[in-house]
Amino acid sequence: MLLPGGISVKIPTIPALVLLKLFAWRDRHRDDTRDALDVATMIEWYSSGKYFDRLYDQETDWLEKFDYDPPLAGAALLGSQIPSLLDEKGTAELLRVLDDQELMGRLAKDMGGSRPDLLVRAMIQGVHAAVSTSK
């Protein structure tokens, strides 16, 4: 992104922000839930605006898999974008976190809102789908 005065600023992608927030939440969820709230917001972004259009134009497989429920399909699409940001060791750590059912139940609780448990599960399914196709 170019700011006035010709200053160039790099902006992280939403999947990169979610990855950052997942690990930040893991490290400090006992003291603060703000990272979980941020994850919930970013999951919501992935089923609205241009991402909503992307689901219906390019990612219909996710929509079909989640019975045309855009928030769940968007969460899965978001999850599917995260593993490509990591090396093998990072992916293994991410899976260790996401496969901890107790921890992910706590994440869903901390996220609040509507159907957080389903959104977390859909995001995890997206991660697993991307990891299995990259092997």
Rank of each mutant, 00 (worst) to 15 (best):
S84L: 06
L107V: 05
P116H: 02
D69G: 05
A24R: 12
F52P: 00
D31T: 08
A73G: 01
K10Y: 08
D67S: 15
G74L: 01
L85V: 08
D87S: 07
L86H: 06
W62H: 03
A36D: 09
I7V: 14
W25E: 09
K65S: 14
V131I: 15
A16R: 14
E44P: 00
A40F: 03
L63D: 06
R115T: 09
A40E: 07
W62I: 02
R28P: 00
R115F: 10
V18D: 07
Y68T: 07
G74R: 04
G113D: 08
Y51T: 00
Q125L: 07
G79Q: 09
T33H: 10
T33S: 12
T91Q: 15
G113Y: 08
S48K: 15
K10I: 08
S134Q: 12
I43E: 04
T41M: 14
K89Y: 13
G112F: 03
Y68S: 13
D57P: 00
L95D: 03
V131P: 11
V120I: 13
G5C: 06
P12I: 06
V9W: 03
L37P: 00
I14H: 12
I11H: 02
R54C: 06
G79E: 00
K10H: 08
G5W: 01
L103M: 09
L103K: 04
D99L: 14
L3V: 05
D27Y: 03
H128L: 14
Y56P: 01
R54D: 09
D87W: 05
T41I: 12
G6P: 06
P4Y: 07
R54I: 00
L22E: 11
S48D: 13
M104Q: 12
T91M: 12
T60V: 12
K65N: 07
D38M: 07
E93W: 00
L78C: 07
L37G: 13
Q58Y: 15
A92K: 15
S8L: 10
Q81W: 03
R106G: 03
L22I: 13
Q58K: 11
I7T: 10
G74Q: 02
R34G: 09
L77A: 03
